[in-house]
Design a protein around this nucleic acid. Sequence first.
RNA 1: CCGUGGUUAAUGU
Length: 253
Amino acid sequence: LVAWTAMLAANAKLGHLARAEKVFNEMPERDVIAWNAMLAGCARARILSRTKYLFDAMPERDSVSWNALLSAYALEGHLELAKETFDGMPERDIVSWSCLLSVYSLHGHLERASELFHRSPEWSIVSYSCMLDAFSKSGYVDDAKAMFNAMPEWNLIARNSLLDAYAQHGEIQQAKSFFDSFPERDDISWTALLNAFAHGGQLSKARDMLELIPHKHEPVPWNTILAAFARSGRFETAMQHLHEMELEGIPAD
RNA sequence: CCGUGGUUAAUGU
């Protein structure tokens, strides 16, 4: 059962919904975790009707099922349905709270996010990260930083979030020294750093930094620079950059 | 106290 569910979840995660459903249908038995995996697959594929249908058809539901449904509504931008789901849950765990918080954060509702954060019975690293993003999105870099400092522990996502806050506001020095202090970095860290230089008016420096990225052929950092050239009205440079991308074998998507 | 685990929540164009 564990192996079947792992297969199911892997297919669902890769977006192979049909294969996931095939596994689900062929499984000799299904427990609530298998149902939840199938539910999450539909949610990720953004087939809301199927997600809701599965949810209603499940023989039993736990908080993971409810959280998956909440998350499905959030993905589709149905804030009210997400809220109704949250309110209608028989019990709310720490993920339920951070899930609804993420909905408000992602959609830029700082007031609602803040209210929910303070009403939460407990905070996880995700709750803090969501609030950090909510502040950052609304332009409150200092509050984002305060939220970061208030966290009991930090991971790469939290660090990337604050780095992105600096980057979005073009605070190059802050971003640079913060980036240098990271115990580990991923492509998102690098992209955020590029963005700091791009938004801080040092576009050619940002371009040069593409060469320093460990995974040089990730398309997102290149697209970031391309977008920055376009925003600044340097269309000739943008076209040249696009040509360089072709030469590097980076597909323009 | 720490680590691990078949399903759900947070970061870049």
